[in-house]
């Protein structure tokens, strides 16, 4: 797995670089470190990048340091588009309120434009021991679960597969049993959700990781965030929002919503 780490010398990117090095030591075959620093932080950024590179080289991982000048977000996108990465790990200060409304979210801009999976480091950034993989049942689920499985195996992390059922019955002919069943019951019963979860668990197994499935009921976004808090997960994994054509304007971008509101690292799989 080829990984891109980034720093601008700030404390926010320092945390991302630190977690990135810990991930890369276990999961990377090669690492690029991108340094995008303004003059006042140039020395600090250089030191951080060299320390990270030394750590990785000690672990036998080849490292290349790239220097760019300009806006961090734009340069990360350009670097990721210029080379081929499996994973880009970023951190950085997130805008809030009106500023986010006016200027947008830097992390969101990276996840939207980078042609690779992006791990956005937020919150405490502990070792990634427990991973929550969100599975919608859509076309991106398979790729998301495979990637999460591969990463979890490398990190030795446990995996929980989450599916949120927010459906309500509209008619008396509605299949109510499926709305109240646990994940195990759904799998045993062979309901559409059960078949999907079973297939995703099999995929995890083929990636060398066993996990178990959890069903929650309620609003999708709220339930993912609630499960991540209650289960004290170290990482939330979610598929990138890819719905070309008219659907992109009709459908909610849940990965963006989770990315902006979660208080822990989020991996958006592409």
């Amino acid at each position: 797995m080829k990984i891109l780490l980034c720093t601008d010398g700030s404390s926010y990117t320092a945390r991302a670089l630190d977690l990135g090095v810990r991930v890369a030591r276990k999961a990377a075959s090669a690492v690029d470190i991108l340094v995008v620093a303004k003059r006042d932080r140039e020395e600090k950024a250089r030191q951080m990048a060299e320390k990270a590179a030394a750590d990785l080289e000690t672990a036998g991982i080849p490292v290349a340091i790239h220097r760019r000048s300009g806006q961090m977000t734009e340069e990360v996108v350009l670097q990721a588009q210029a080379a081929s990465y499996d994973l880009v790990i970023i951190g950085g200060r997130e805008r809030r309120g009106v500023m986010r409304l006016l200027l947008g979210s830097p992390a969101l801009r990276v996840t939207e434009h980078v042609p690779a999976s992006v791990l956005v480091v937020k919150g405490q950034a502990r070792d990634l021991k427990q991973v929550l993989v969100c599975s919608s049942g859509g076309p991106t689920s398979e790729r998301t679960v495979r990637f999460a499985g591969r990463l979890a195996r490398a990190l030795g992390a446990s995996v929980i597969l989450l599916h949120v059922m927010s459906q309500l019955p509209l008619t008396k002919s509605a299949v109510l049993d499926d709305l109240e069943a646990s994940a195990e019951e759904l799998i045993r019963r062979g309901s559409p959700e059960g078949v999907h979860l079973g297939r995703m668990l099999d995929l995890l197994a083929t990636e060398g990781r066993t996990g178990h499935a959890v069903i929650r009921r309620g609003l999708v976004r709220d339930e993912i965030l609630a499960e991540s808090r209650e289960g004290q997960y170290d990482l939330i994994v979610i598929g990138a929002h890819i719905t070309p054509g008219l659907n992109a304007r009709l459908v909610e971008d849940l990965s963006a919503a989770i990315l902006l509101t979660a208080n822990r690292p989020v991996l958006v799989v592409r």
């Binding site: 927010s166 459906q167 309500l168 019955p169 509209l170 008619t171 008396k172 002919s173 509605a174 299949v175 499926d178 709305l179 559409p192 309620g218 609003l219 999708v220 909610e252």
Partner: peptide
């Protein structure tokens, strides 16, 4: 109007975010 949505789902239910 809600009934028109029902044939979309073979199982007779919709996501609450949509409804």
């Amino acid at each position: 109007s809600v009934g028109i949505l029902v044939p979309l789902s073979a199982r007779g239910y919709m996501r609450r975010e949509n409804i």
